[in-house]
Write a protein that binds this DNA or RNA. Structure first.
Length: 571
RNA sequence: CGGGACGUGGCUCAGCCUGGUAGAGCACAGCGUUCGGGACGCUGGGGUCGGAGGUUCAAAUCCUCUCGUCCCGACCA
């Protein structure tokens, strides 16, 4: 392919609106442009990368026995009302009416549609297991799109849905998807980690996320240094503390004046105690009744755990007015003593023997409080976030916290959608059975961004061989030199004929411009043809990632490059 | 939805405070020179200053409203 014939609008300067590395580089390399917040155009080079990812995903899904389909992006509200998600999904679901006034939405995910297909077309256990997938545009009206392709509103997703007769079958399918996903991300040249995850609003019983490790990641994950335990921070378990609370301290708890002392740090300094001896009382409003959550001063609450424990969908920290109404005191002096709302305590709180709590009275705290003697706790549970100080919940070794970009998520759905939409088959005894489902997503366009977050330097993108828009960039130094021009053209034709994807920079530009652009585009290999080396019958091959420079005889260029490409694909 | 920043040729920005009728660099077109890490000269095209309203003899500049964008916190592939 010739550079001069492709639309590759590279930019010297960083657009003001881009912040994340992948966003900046995709933009500068002329691969994407923005149409609106979270909505992007894919230009020729960006599309080539996207297609590479899609093809890898397609091959591995097919290999795992899944079948490709294409479902509609626009969906009738009826299906969503039937599953109950029309009410539950929130504003992220883009809703609109057609000309007849019928409610519609633009699909953010396709459980409803696929389950509808299966309930109409599949009636016997003999037709199962079935795994259907598609690669398609999704729309989610995100609160805050950011980082370019990492969190767009419109994006390309591969979503697969599996249907099995029984739970054992569903687990086998889940396992095969786990394997397929691992192969996909490995083939994409990504450094990733599979972690246990919360199931969120999609629902279901069990799930893993696939995280690309990158400092710019939006997710935190906890990973064991010894065993293979790894979990999203929102899911990561804290093992129960070993020590039981000691006996109550001598004497009863004491009310002490703490004028203007509100935060954990202030209380610790004022009373000369450690933050771990202080207990924070957090008042939450929920879609049901308000609750209080007790967390040790040196810990952070994990709202996902609280939400799951309470079985609520909304969980919002109460404002000053609500706190005053429920506790009788300003924020900063809330405490569990004498509260009339349910009290949920983190397990570390229940293991304290003498704690400091707010007194529900302005400018006062209690000291010497014992959980069993003095408090009426509704329930003790694991409600906090893990820290790097916590031991692994499986093996007890140390944990490391890492940042990651979620590129894939697999769920065991169970019967949630098959029951809601009545998707049933007859089993081998002629009995009606609900179908066991699983769903499996990959952020295809997000992978493109994640690969850049992992592969770049100050000069630009460094694509993995498998995703590069072209494998080789061919740079003739001076288009006015006939030998240079003709040699480059010949090399280009030879490589292309051999099935190697090569981009010939045939522009009448100075060498510096071509080099800068090539580095920015991030093609793995660069071949430079110029009068200097040509005189010796050679051309120069440069490896983008290692910056290795090699002079190669012209007639050996083809095998040399072919070897390098094969080698990279296997790395 | 809260908190912050911003909107001036395609891109990066100056001008705004202290109103006087729009600039620079890059990019683009033509000609010439140049050619191994974002060359140079000459010439040229391109902007209702996000939009609406107001103040004023006069608004990019002051006031009000509005739309949009980006960044930080609650959602997700």
């Amino acid at each position: 392919m010739r550079y001069s014939r492709l639309l590759i609008p590279t930019l010297k300067e960083t657009p003001a609106e881009a912040e994340a590395t992948s966003h900046i580089l995709l933009f500068r390399a002329g691969m994407i442009r923005k149409l609106a917040s979270g909505i992007y155009d894919y230009l020729p080079l960006g599309l080539r990368v996207l297609r590479k990812v899609e093809q890898i995903v397609r091959e591995e899904m097919n290999r795992a026995g899944a079948q490709e389909v294409l479902l509609p992006a626009v969906q009738p509200a009826e299906l969503w009302q039937e599953s109950g998600r029309w009410q539950v999904y929130g504003k992220e679901l883009l809703r609109f009416k057609d000309r007849h006034g019928r409610d519609c939405c633009f699909g953010p995910t396709h459980e409803e549609v696929i389950t509808d297909v299966v309930r109409r077309e599949v009636h016997s256990y003999r037709q199962l297991p079935l795994n259907l997938y598609q690669i398609q545009v999704k729309f989610r009206d995100e609160i805050r799109p950011r980082f370019g392709l990492i969190r767009g509103r419109e994006f390309i997703m591969k979503d697969a849905y599996s249907f099995d007769v029984d739970e054992a079958g569903a687990e086998l399918t889940y396992g095969s998807m786990y394997e397929a996903y691992s192969r996909i991300f490995r083939r994409c040249g990504l450094t990733f980690k599979a972690v246990e995850a919360d199931t969120g609003p999609i629902g279901g019983s069990f799930s893993h996320e696939f995280m690309v490790l990158a400092d710019t990641g939006e997710d935190l994950l906890a990973s064991c240094n010894s065993c293979n335990y790894a979990a999203n921070l929102e899911k990561a378990e804290v093992p129960p503390p070993e020590d039981n609370p000691g006996p109550p301290p001598a004497g009863s708890s004491k009310l002490v004046a703490t004028p203007g002392v509100r935060t954990v740090e202030e209380v610790a300094a004022f009373l000369k105690v450690q933050p771990r001896d202080i207990v924070k009382t957090l008042i939450y409003e929920t879609d049901q009744d308000p609750v209080a959550v007790l967390i040790r001063g040196d810990h952070e609450v994990n709202e996902i755990k609280v939400r799951n424990l309470l079985g609520v969908t909304d969980l919002i920290l109460a404002g000053p007015a609500k706190v005053k109404e429920l506790t009788g005191a300003e924020v900063g002096f809330s405490g569990p003593l004498g509260l009339s709302i349910p009290i949920y305590a983190d397990q570390a709180v229940a293991a304290l023997s003498a704690m400091v709590i707010g007194a529900n009275k302005d400018d006062h705290h209690f000291t010497g409080v014992h959980p069993q003697r003095d408090l009426q706790i509704t329930r003790v549970a694991d409600l906090r976030q893990v820290t790097e100080q916590d031991p692994c919940p499986r093996c007890g070794a140390a944990l490391t916290l890492l940042k990651g970009i979620e590129v894939g998520h697999i769920f065991k759905l169970g019967l949630k959608y098959s029951k809601a939409l009545a998707a049933k088959v007859l089993d081998d005894e002629g009995e009606e059975q609900f179908i066991f489902m699983g769903c499996y997503g990959i952020g295809v366009s997000r992978i493109v961004a994640a690969a850049i977050e992992q592969g770049h330097d100050t000069d630009g993108i460094i694509w993995p061989m498998a995703l590069a828009p072209f494998q080789v960039g061919l740079v003739p130094i001076n288009m006015n030199d006939q030998t240079t021009r003709e040699t480059a053209a010949r090399l280009h034709d030879e490589l292309e004929a051999a099935g190697i994807e090569v981009l010939l920079d045939d522009r009448d530009e100075r060498p510096g411009v071509k080099f800068k652009d090539m580095d920015l585009l991030g093609l793995p290999l660069r071949v430079v043809v110029g009068p200097k080396t040509l005189a010796a019958g050679q051309a120069e091959v440069r490896h983008r990632r290692t910056q290795n420079l090699t002079l190669v005889e012209l007639d050996r260029i083809f095998p040399y490059i072919k070897d390098l490409i094969v080698q990279e694909f296997h790395d």
